[in-house]
Write a protein that binds this DNA or RNA. Structure first.
Lengths: 225, 225
DNA sequence: GCCCATATTCGACTTTTGGCGAAACTACCG
DNA sequence: CGGTAGTTTCGCCAAAAGTCGAATATGGGC
């Protein structure tokens, strides 16, 4: 049946003003659209968990509760069917490239004009991908890092959860409790993670994960004062 | 003989031109001075290991073989008697403060003029400390990080070596082999490290160390109000 | 429906890790 | 010289981590 085109979007950004502007831009693009807003990563997860079908998430990686790419990785692992557009103030080509490697459907610099933004979103809603036309995606082609990201992309949803908990320094016992499974299960997941990442201990796994996260976000504007 | 004031300095920087300029500046300051240059961190260690007495090290933290503060930490742990001046292109007050917390005797921005540089060096050779006069050392006073650095400062030389090997993801067995001691000894060091850093596992120890290294000056965790 | 691939789960077993106590060595001080 | 404090060293034992094999969902495709 021909389903009225009722799109469901989620706009995730910690700046309310920007969320509003983004909502405005999208409203003009689509007639029937249900837009939810989230100011923290947990809110995004809650929306996806509860609300059911979502057609697109506009995600700012510099949000409370996310450090770097882990939010994107988590999202792609837990909800593989939901396209994610990364919206960021950072327009470093290497960062853009990395987002795409993590499975984003697009990357929208916050500096982008409304028109280009609409073009990008409609393209992605149609099933395609979109990145800023004027960046060289070959930049930052770090073989080692790229390969590691590719390996991380093969992790199952549960394994991604476990890897993040490893990166917090939790014991298998603690992870097991939080996930509501047995310790043996966690160990099995850890073993699978180690094999997929090509490392030999949990310590090496968190080091590898940290390398990906690290240092690709500009020195934050020392705006305090 | 009457103790000719024969100072021995080490200039450690990966830019030969800058090393030359620095050598020039110091030559004008001291009459009898033996200046050694190093382009990598390993060369610095070799000089200190072989040459014996060294009165001062001028260390650039952005050198091959060093990632962030670990070079300074290693140096202060292995050769506590040798004063270290950090020479860096970065003049972020928080970074300066962190260097001083790690036990540096001074911090010289590369932008500094020759005269001020000479003042700083002579002051430090006299046993004092020196930091740029116009920076607010109270900035970047991150309690958590500062406390962690203070804890790291209590590590013994051998413990520092072990901690760095932990951060490379090595097993106790591998560390033991490289240090030429038994595995039991390494475990004892690891236990001491965990206690001093206030963490509960080697994984948490490397996470803590990485937080300090990452240079990621305090990533603001949106505790706005 | 059945079948196949994958994800998730778990128990038994081996290896690694970490805590505890103690000996040897060093350095410094009265 | 003796004594005190700190570092380095090590063995023993309990806990945690990791491997292996296997049972149980889960989710398409034929």
């Amino acid at each position: 049946m021909n389903e009225v085109l009722q799109y469901r979007l989620v706009i995730a950004d910690d700046h309310p003003l920007f969320r509003g502007a983004m909502r405005e831009a999208v409203s003009g693009l689509l007639e029937r659209v249900d837009i939810a807003e989230a100011g923290t990563f947990d809110e995004v997860v809650e929306l996806l968990e509860r609300g059911g079908e979502v057609d697109l998430v506009l995600l700012d990686l510099a949000m409370p509760g996310v450090r770097g790419f882990s939010g994107l990785m988590y999202m792609r692992a837990q909800y593989p069917g939901v396209p994610v557009i990364v919206v960021s103030a950072n327009d470093d080509p290497a960062a853009i490239r990395r987002c795409m490697e993590f499975g984003a459907s697009g990357f929208i610099p916050k500096t982008l004009g409304v028109d280009a933004m609409r073009t990008a979103i409609s393209r992605i809603l149609g099933g395609g991908v979109w990145t800023p036309p004027d960046v060289d995606l070959a930049v930052g082609l770090d073989t080692e890092a790229a390969e590691l990201i590719a390996r991380m992309a093969t992790l199952t949803p549960q394994q991604v959860r476990v890897l993040m908990m490893l990166s917090e320094g939790l014991l298998n016992k603690q992870i097991a409790y939080q996930l509501g499974v047995s310790e043996a299960t966690v160990k099995a997941h850890v073993s699978a993670i180690l094999q997929k990442l090509g490392v030999e201990s949990r310590t090496q796994a968190v080091i590898a994960a940290a390398k990906i996260e690290a240092g690709h976000w500009p020195q934050n504007v020392a705006a305090e004062g």
